[in-house]
Amino acid sequence: MTAQLHPVSGIPTPVKVWAPGKINVHLGVGKSGDDGYHELATVFQALNLGETLTLVPGGNGSIVVRGRYADADVPQGDANFARRAVNLLISALEDERDVDVLRDLDIIIDKQVPVAGGMGGGSADAAAALCGAAHLIGGVDDGLLHDCAVEVGADVAFLLRGGTAIGHGRGEKLSPVLTRGSFHWVMATSASQLSTPTVYSRFDDLNPDPEPAVVPAEVLTALAAGDLDTLAGAAVNDLTEAAVSYMPELAEVMEAGRDAGALLPLLSGSGPTIGFLARDAHHALDLAVLLQATRGVKEALRTTGPAPGAHIIDEH
């Protein structure tokens, strides 16, 4: 189904929005609460490898997926994160605001973040959709946007803001983090997928009484100073052992990255994508070439952080 690309008379023009992907520079995992969610202490960093959405008012409610990962299994209809985000905003405002322009939006997704890899591509779609929808109705209170974002998924609130931030709770309680300079990453994706609930369940099996989740002071100090070596020695992802227990090849990819000179191999979220910290752009290029030839790596993608959060890039 083809989305309408040109405005209908009397209907606002389409709006184009960009939102970043992310990496968890550190991910500490604590106990599971009564709601089934684990207490997290994480450091998000937004990456310049992002998603672009075009919201077209006056359409028929279609979702069109284009771009590098257009052939991936992207949910359609109300199951799509972008559509769900818009629907939540409509529900939150329809009793007090005119939100008719948000009904029957066509959503065109330029898919540039790998799907189901722990980099937040679906969450970026939701963040972009919220940003664009808010623009179409003349602005929305930041607190309300945050609440809608959290209801879609814990990462969405961060991707609205971008930059680098500590996330507590499920990751939705955010505090900005000072950083210096750019951080160069090579994201090694896998042809296989990992179920997030399954990885967390295995974490529980391996850690029946985990310590409270914390972000080490050394991680924050290193980010503020742009000290890559200290960051490499302090940052961890507590889900790594659980993910590797399901996909042993992840450990082999991490070791290959270390052998190739990566400062830090870091599971992205619950995986299976692995982020490798490089010293600079030239080092990242060398790493990407070596990792691309490594068994178990589907793609080696270069990116940098921190990147800005969701924002309008073109109103036409």
Rank of each mutant, 00 (worst) to 15 (best):
D280Y: 03
A262T: 13
A157W: 00
V177F: 05
G162T: 08
S270T: 06
A41I: 10
L239M: 09
P308M: 07
P216L: 10
Y246E: 11
G132P: 06
A293K: 13
T189V: 10
L27H: 05
V74Q: 09
E241L: 12
L159F: 01
T164Y: 00
L266R: 14
A157K: 04
W18M: 13
P114Y: 02
G61Y: 00
K111C: 12
D104R: 11
G181Q: 10
A224H: 01
G33E: 01
S245P: 10
V215M: 12
L285E: 15
F81Q: 15
A72G: 13
V65E: 13
L144R: 14
V186Q: 12
S190W: 04
H282Q: 13
C148P: 06
M254H: 10
Q112V: 02
R202A: 11
P20F: 07
D142C: 09
D205W: 08
D238I: 03
H316L: 08
D155W: 00
L145Y: 04
S201A: 15
M187V: 15
I107H: 04
R161M: 07
H168E: 14
D35K: 03
G120H: 02
G77S: 14
A243C: 11
G138A: 09
H311R: 13
A310W: 11
G33V: 03
D98S: 02
D141E: 15
Y37T: 06
K22Q: 01
M119P: 05
T240F: 10
L49P: 00
S270W: 04
G58L: 06
A224T: 05
L144I: 11
G271S: 04
T273N: 15
P265N: 02
P20C: 04
P114L: 13
